[in-house]
Amino acid sequence: MTRRILSGVLGVVIAFVVGAIIMLLEGYEPLATYGALAQFSLGGIGPLTTTLKNSVPLVLTGLSAAIAFASGPVNLGQPGQLVFGALAATLGGLYISLPPVLEIPLLLLLAIAGGALWSGLAGLLKQAFGMSEFIVTLMLNMIADFFTAWAIAYPFMDRKAFSPMTPPIAQSGWMPDIGPLNASVLIMLVSVVVMWFVFQRWRAGYEWRITGQNSLFARLGGCDVRGNFMAVMLVTGALAGLAGGLVVMGGPHRFLKGLGANYAWDGIMIAIMANNGLVETLIYGVFVAAIQTGALGMELITNVPSEIAQVLQAVLVLVIVATREYASVVFDRLAARRQARERAT
C-alpha cells in the first residue's frame, strides 16, 4: 500500500518536473504557471466545485474502463457509449416533461440504457461471432460519433442555433445545484461507492475479478465466464452512458457538437494511471479534472495555451506507469538485498 502511494506520488512529481522542463524550453515560467493552474482549480470554493463538476465524466468513464480492464473485456468504447448515453438523455429531456423527482431519474436511466445498448452491441458481436471487442469498440466509437453528429445536425437540430446542437432539454431534467455543488457530483460519488461494493464485496464482482486474472481458473471454478463478460460489458457501458447523461443534464442542458470529443480517451487514461483500482480512479479523475479546469484559467493570466494540459496529461500517464513498474523492480531488489544481508548475519 505504502509502495503504491509512494510510486504514485513519485510519478506525479517526475511528470510535473518533465512538464516544467517543457515549459522552460518554450520560455514560460513553470512555477507561475503551476501556481495559476492550482489557483484556478483548487483555490477556493468556486474553483473547487467547478473542478469536482468537471471530474464527473472523467471519473465515471475511468470507472468504466477500470472495471472492464480488471475483469478481462478490453472495452475501449467509452467515448461512443458516452455520446450514446448523452443522446438518449437528451432525447428523453426533449420529448418527456415530468416533475423533477421523476424526470431526473428517468433521464439518468435513459442515459444508462443508451450506454449499455452501445456496449451491449459490442458484447453481442463478441458472443455471437467471436469478434474481438478491442477493435469492435474502437470502430463503434467512430460510428457513434458520426451518428450523433447526424442526429444533432438533422432530425433533432435546434433551428434557431448557428451550429449543430439540439434545443435545450426540459428544465425539470436539469441537475440542480445543492449549495455551490452540482448534484451530478453526488451521483458520481454514489456510483463509485456502489461499484466499489459490487466489485470488491459482492460475488459477481469477485467472479469478474477472478475472470480478469485467470479466465481458465474462473471457468474451472464454476463461473459463467460468457455471462460475466456480457455483464461487465453492459455495466461498463452503463457507467460511460451515465457520464454522458450527466454531462448534458449538469452542463449545457443540450447536446452540443463535439460533446464527446473532450472526454474521448480521458477515462481510459485515468484507469491506466489508477492501475484499474476504483478508489485510485476517483483520485486520479479529480486530479486530471483539476489540471483541465486550471488550464483554462492559467491561459488567461500566463499566456500559456491551455492545450498544454493535454501534453501534461500524456506525460503524466507515461511517467506514472513507468515509475510504478520501475519502482516495483527497485523495491523488490532492495527487499532481496535486505533479506540477503539478514541471512548473512
Binding site: W265, I268, M269, I272, E307, A309, Q310, V311, Q313, A314, V315, V317, L318, V321
Partner: peptide, 12 residues
C-alpha cells in the same frame, strides 16, 4: 499503455 499514452501525446 505506452501506445495509448503516445497516441494521446501526439494528439495533445
Amino acid at each position: 499503455v505506452t501506445g495509448i499514452a503516445l497516441n494521446l501525446f501526439a494528439l495533445g
